[in-house]
Design a protein around this nucleic acid. Structure first.
Lengths: 247, 247
DNA sequence: TCAAAAGTGTTCTTATTACACCCATGG
DNA sequence: CCATGGGTGTAATAAGAACACTTTTGA
């Protein structure tokens, strides 16, 4: 068995890409590292997998240890194994991702995390290791998945308005959607429960609040569904302009 | 750095799931192992990744060494890392998959492969390690991908009939498709070149032969496209039956 | 002349798109 | 009374689904 020994000198880690949505902005949870390598740098919450630990279990444990976030569903995305991606030796990493409702969790940095904080996707710093690359791959995956699974709903608080939901999809898909078509499609899925409540204290007509129909949501999740939505083509033109120009 | 040493005792491998299509049947390329563990058992062509080798490169090298297949595009699928999946220690594996035209390659078992052979997907034996699980996951991925990318074409010989193409999709999607709707959709993509040739020596009306328009294929590949096709609901009823029953 | 697979169109239904104005509230 | 975002419907088009018979060949 001796000639195998050379192969048993590498390590592997899990890295978690946790997406959240707040203030109309898609966010990702990052930690500041309190350990070498990349001490003091922002990074995805990740760590080594123990010898007696499955990958999925490791991802859950590591996330909890570094950020205090518990009880979330993590999905494996991809491995990254470039030869020199870790300065201590050969380390490949398995990326996991999840979508959570920011308001449901309090972030509690611990272990090797000096800090844990939500960062806007659009303003993520230079991260440790190849974590920018990993983040990008996970964002791509999110973008892809959201079209065929009703995932976006994982990110919103229990009560939300249709406009918030639309903004979320726009943030993920990086496009503008047509308001009427969006509402028509969403409502036709029969996935939202009208709470007969409205926003309060807003300086405009208050929006109705909705909640997900968990049962139907689970049903749709398992069968998958098509969620392509065409972007709005309105060129920010003020109403009643052209069109009526010709007799 | 000493407390990290415990982590650097694992190994990782790549395993390739190579799909082909022949005789109306979806196939996968397997090797018979000539090395422990699982000596003599059928397995996916895979092996350890060298310390100085990237994952993608390792997948290509391993495939070539074990089967002689060279110059194919391999795509990473997923990692498998259950604690006891390898009897020699902690070994996680990265699964890769590819689609090839069986007729374009001659299989040349070498290295630790005693044999290399195409096996019908529907009749795959008990494989070494967790390779049945890996195969299943890759088949699922194929099924999923084929709906949104014109992948199926990778599997057919340069010239083929529309019925062959349909059978291929039926094999991958494990369903029946409506002949007329299938042809309508495929031809409307403007992806096939009519060679103005027909089959010869068949005991029925000979079918026209087509070839892919490589240029347009590449264009579609990069933009992705929607390839959902509804299954045929014909219940194998002989023509002129019901329907005309009511006045 | 028979068996076997190739080939071919139309109608119906459903989903998608484009698009503009009035409404309710707080300041 | 005004600024702000909420809320609504319809017509045109495109895509999908259902479905049956004639044609060509070799045996």
């Amino acid at each position: 068995m001796s000639h195998f020994d050379n192969f048993f000198k590498s390590a592997f880690t899990v890295d978690n890409v946790i997406f959240g949505f707040d203030e109309g902005d898609l966010k990702v949870l990052l930690i500041r590292r309190g350990e070498e390598p990349y001490h003091g740098k922002w990074a995805l919450p990740g760590y080594f997998v123990y010898p007696n630990e499955d990958l999925d279990g490791a991802a859950i444990r590591v996330l909890e240890e570094l950020t205090g976030i518990d009880n979330v569903y993590l999905e494996q995305v991809q491995s990254f194994g470039a030869v020199n991606r870790h300065p201590f030796g050969r380390v490949i990493t398995i990326a996991y991702f999840s979508l959570i409702k920011i308001s449901n969790f309090s972030i509690q940095p611990a272990s090797i995390a000096l800090q844990a904080q939500w960062h806007s996707i659009s303003a993520v710093a230079n991260l440790a290791f190849d974590h920018n690359k990993i983040l990008k791959a996970c964002f791509q995956k999110l973008k892809w998945l959201v079209r065929s699974r009703p995932l976006g709903f994982e990110l919103l608080p229990p009560q939300f308005t249709l406009t918030e939901l639309q903004h979320l999809y726009e943030a993920i898909l990086e496009t503008d959607l047509d308001k009427r078509n969006f509402r028509k499609k969403i409502l036709s899925m029969d996935l939202l429960i009208d709470l007969n409540l409205t926003q309060e204290g807003v300086a405009h007509r208050p929006a109705k609040l909705y909640q997900f129909d968990e049962e139907r949501y689970q049903a749709l999740l398992s069968e998958g569904f098509n969620f392509e939505l065409k972007e709005s083509r309105t060129q920010h033109k003020k109403d009643k302009s052209s069109e009526s120009a010709h007799p």
